[in-house]
Design a protein around this nucleic acid. Structure first.
Length: 412
RNA sequence: GCGGGGGUAGCUCAGUUGGUUAGAGCACCAGGUUGUGGCCCUGGGGGUCGGGGGUUCAAGUCCCCUCUCUCGCCCCA
């Protein structure tokens, strides 16, 4: 630590930025509430197995990106790299199977040891929506609709494209995986080095490789659609019909895959071309096997997470200056009266700026800088007359009115 | 983890082939105005030139290491 800096990949969120951050969370919460989702939170750290067992030991996140440590009691713990695993754990821990479908909205910090870039930090924040205990494609439609509504309210839906795919049920996936391995093995010498590794670990990932050579091979690779069981195929059809009915535009992307092991059936991503390599703004899918993997009874689930920092980068800055009124006392006697008046106004929900000191000139300057819409001046003359002077800081117009009329005037 | 490009005041930046006390604009503070803001004028405070080491009579400037931001890969929200 050469200087007093935040840890690499972490950032302070100062008031101006926090207002935008907060706006994203508020809009998301409000929209989720409209669909019947209820806000909750889980701990920021969990036993390491919660993530290892759900996301897959071989996934990149688990194998090399987690902030894991042993606590003083000898427990192996991990700072959460995502929200889904923790919410599923909470579902099991609290016996929530009697409340299905369980619909949750959550947000908070996540931690991943990655190389930082714009829109990618080691501590980052996500909004998250989950439905646990619903096997119907209507749940998928709803969950995606919530996401679209949030993006619409943030004014960034038209900057994004919804890409949709199905990974099929486990039965479909086994057959498809075999077909892919067979196909790519036949062209192994033409594959990139990265993709040769993926062939063993996660052949599906080859499908979204950015390597030119890989892409040429992928173009002729088998499609998941041809390996879907009738049930999986019907499910995907129902999802698309449902989205159409809900008025959510989408694009089927046969090469869209997921990096985490727990996904089945639906996979989707809202992506943008405005954030460079960090084009995924909000993504998720169905995870019917996850609860069981964590030790619960077989329970289907679906959900998504959205990166708050990325959403903030896409949304237009909209400074919402607090419209407050400045009280400006002149003279010692007025100080006490100003404090009293400030308390009264604040109790009545009027935002008040009361400087700690300085003469009238200083205080007016400060009121102006803070964007106050009006100033209330109290001096010896006003005290004697039981009045206050109200100055409109936009027009400069001044009026004198009885102290008792001030609240009503300000509220008008 | 791999490859490329940057770090000079709170912010945006200038700084010549190495050369003496490192500058500007904005912001901040003070005064002009101890009962009136915005505009203007005058003055002021602020810099380990990201950090460390090296070359040199002399380093913001050249070399090495390191930290960090950034673009791409990987991965993902």
């Amino acid at each position: 630590m050469a200087q007093l800096q935040p840890v690499r990949g972490t950032h302070d969120i100062l008031p101006d930025d926090y207002a935008r951050f907060r706006h994203v969370v508020d809009v998301a919460r409000q929209a989720a509430l409209l669909f019947g989702y209820r806000e909750m939170a889980t701990p920021i750290f969990e036993f390491t197995e919660v993530f290892a067992r759900s996301m897959g030991e071989t996934s990149d996140v688990v194998s090399k990106e987690m902030y894991s440590f042993t606590d003083k009691g000898g427990e192996g713990l991990t700072l959460r790299p995502e929200y889904t695993a923790g919410i599923c754990r909470a579902f099991i821990s609290n016996g929530l199977q009697q409340h299905v479908p369980f619909k949750a909205f959550a947000w908070g910090p996540m931690f991943r040891f990655e190389r930082p870039q714009k829109g990618r930090q080691r501590q980052f924040h996500q909004i998250d929506v989950e439905v646990i205990g619903a096997a119907e494609p209507q749940a998928d439609v709803e969950v995606i609709s919530v996401a679209a509504e949030i993006l619409r309210r943030l004014g960034i839906l038209d900057k994004c494209v919804l890409e949709l795919n199905t990974l099929g049920d486990p039965e479909s996936r086994v057959g498809y995986r075999e077909a892919l391995v067979r196909y790519f093995s036949g062209h192994a010498d033409a594959l990139s080095e990265d993709s040769r590794k993926r062939l063993e670990k996660n052949p599906l990932r080859i499908l979204d490789s950015k390597d030119e050579g890989d892409r040429r091979l992928v173009a002729n690779a088998p499609l998941i659609q041809d390996y879907l069981t009738p049930a999986a195929s019907d499910f995907f059809k129902a999802l698309q019909d449902g989205l159409g009915a809900a008025g959510v535009p989408f694009k089927v992307s046969p090469r869209l895959v997921r990096g985490l092991d727990y996904y089945t059936h639906t996979a989707f991503e809202f992506t943008t071309d405005m954030l460079g390599a960090q084009g995924t703004v909000l993504a998720g899918g169905r995870y019917d096997g996850l609860i069981e993997q964590l030790g619960g009874k077989p329970t289907p689930g679906i959900g998504w997470a959205g990166g708050i920092e990325r959403l903030v980068l896409l949304s237009d800055p909209q400074p919402v200056p607090p419209r407050s009124v400045a009280i400006i006392p002149i003279g010692a006697a007025a100080e006490a009266e100003a404090a009293k008046l400030a308390a009264e106004l604040r109790r009545a929900d009027v935002a008040v700026e009361l400087a700690y000191g300085g003469n009238a000139g200083k205080r007016f300057k400060r009121a102006d800088k803070l964007g106050c819409f009006a100033a209330v001046v109290i001096g010896d003359d006003e005290l004697a007359g039981g009045v206050v002077k109200l100055k409109n800081l936009t027009s400069g117009e001044e009026t004198t009115l009885p102290r008792g009329d001030l609240l009503a005037k300000l509220k008008a």
